[in-house]
Design a protein around this nucleic acid. Structure first.
Length: 423
RNA sequence: GGAGGGGUGGCAGAGUGGUCGAACGCGCCGCACUUGAAAUGCGGUAUGCCGCAAGGCAUCGUGAGUUCGAAUCUCACCCCCUCCGCCA
């Protein structure tokens, strides 16, 4: 969530930021009205409560009919006031939950993905002396992807990853962990179920994404849409040492997404599915160094893409297309020859203190006068490998005329073979 | 799933209806002593909210309740530990 003081003091900037993110800026005014009412009610409540506390103290010294009846009257008035106060607080918090993180000033402004800015293109697009096929055609022919059977068993937007594709998944996971652990990332396998309260704190149950979550009502739990969601709270309610920042994790988990609202979009194959596996990077950073950290995470993504020898481009996401919790976002889009286009395969976000406020993660530091104080860390997340989409990219970019797939050099050691498809 | 024990400040741990936001200790910070350090002594040391401030309010796992008043009593839930059952 956003800093309440910031909304009070810089309402205009927040309104402008919301507008840039295609959100209704009137929410700010709704918030401010509710906030003001709440503050007035709170002041009244606190004062009455002080009276009650004083009366109680008197009563503890010596009771009398007069005092008791006074106290009983106070009690009734307090109950009414408290109900009104709680109601207003709810209103205020509801408005607050409809305010996203505000983008940095220099983020490109745009309505939708057409406003995204290509930062650079890297790698050579493969040239074929035949018409390249799409991954699904190739994968089905090789028996390494089966969507039809998955639809029978689980429904649409599921897939079986089979044989060498399954092995390729683990090779990718290993490559990512080897690369990142050697850089000091702490390896992790986190829970994939999460409590509603924590999920809210991470800003991932906000109005725009609640429909995207799988909920288990019998247990009051959500399935995570990414290991980001349970890695962020790994230091919930903790105060970290300043010297320990940045603190970096690399995690692996299955991810669950409803893909609500994407009906008719990418309905074929495994590009957009309800369940996929993903290696994720997560970083807890010093607020003054989070932009630098953001670039570092992006550089890790690029390093791994280059190891796979995949052609990609870096895109800075414009205000209208960026995530709810993000102040800045980059995507890695990988070239898919079978579709003749770049598709998003990785994402890299700086959520500044939007999430750390919600899950209460601070670090020890000093204020201007040199007095010790605690301040919120910045939290960043970045895709390591979204396995399904990496499989797609590898299959399409490394296809050969006979329908077999070359295994990227860096994965050959993990997979113990150079080509997928020739017996 | 069944039986029992427990959740209090950075840690450890007392507190079973009112001067308890909370003893004692450890840790931490400051000061004194010291050439320096250790030891010792003195003082300070939870968080959030409202307020320009003085100050006030809230918080003893979470939520509801009883009461003029709850860390303390009642109920529900969550979490941790031990045992039994089941299980990769």
């Amino acid at each position: 969530m956003l800093d309440i003081t910031r909304i009070r003091e810089e309402g205009d900037k927040v309104r402008a930021g919301m507008e840039k993110k295609n959100q209704d800026p009137k929410t700010v005014d709704k918030f401010l009205r509710a906030d003001e009412d709440w503050r007035a009610k709170t002041a009244a409540f606190d004062q009455l409560k002080a009276e009650q506390n004083a009366l109680s103290r008197e009563l503890s010294a010596g009771q009398s009919e007069d005092l008791l009846s006074k106290a009983q009257l106070l009690k009734k008035r307090l109950a009414d006031l408290e109900a009104a106060q709680e109601d207003l607080k709810k209103k205020r918090d509801d408005a607050l939950s409809r305010i996203p993180n505000i983008p940095f000033e220099d983020v490109p402004v745009g309505k939708d993905e057409s406003g995204n800015k290509v930062v650079r293109e890297v790698g050579k697009k493969p040239e074929f002396d035949f018409a390249p096929k799409d991954y699904l055609t190739l994968g089905e022919a090789l028996g390494i992807i089966n969507v039809k059977k998955a639809a029978e068993v689980s429904g649409s937007r599921f897939g079986y990853i089979l044989r060498d594709a399954a092995l390729l998944e683990f090779a990718l996971v290993q490559l990512a962990f080897d690369t990142l652990v050697s850089k000091g990332f702490i390896p992790a396998v986190p829970p994939v179920m999460i409590k509603p309260k924590v999920y809210e704190g991470m800003g991932r149950l906000a109005a725009d994404q609640k429909d995207e979550r799988y909920f288990l009502p019998a247990d009051d739990m959500y399935l995570v849409g990414s290991s980001e969601h349970t890695m962020g709270p790994i230091h919930m309610n903790e105060v970290l040492e300043e010297e320990s920042l940045p603190r970096r994790y690399v995690s692996f988990s299955t991810c669950f997404r409803k893909e609500a609202g994407s009906y008719g979009k990418d309905t074929k194959g495994i590009l957009r599915v309800h369940q996929f596996d993903k290696v994720e990077m997560f970083s807890f950073a010093h607020p003054e160094k989070s932009e630098e950290e953001h670039k570092f995470l992006l550089s890790c993504q690029e390093e791994m893409m280059q190891k796979l020898e995949l052609p990609y481009r870096i895109v800075e996401i414009c205000t209208g297309d960026m995530g709810w919790t993000d102040a800045r976002q980059f995507d890695v889009e990988t070239w898919l020859p079978g579709q003749g286009t770049y598709r998003e395969t990785n994402s890299c976000s700086n959520t500044t203190e939007f999430q750390s406020r919600g899950v209460n993660i601070k670090y020890k530091t000093k204020d201007a006068a040199g007095e010790p104080k605690k301040a919120l860390v910045h939290m960043l997340n970045a895709t390591g490998f979204a396995i399904g989409r990496m499989l797609i990219a590898i299959i399409e970019n490394n296809q050969q005329k006979d329908g077999t797939i070359r295994v990227p050099k860096v994965l050959q050691a993990y997979l113990h073979k150079e080509v997928i498809g020739n017996a």
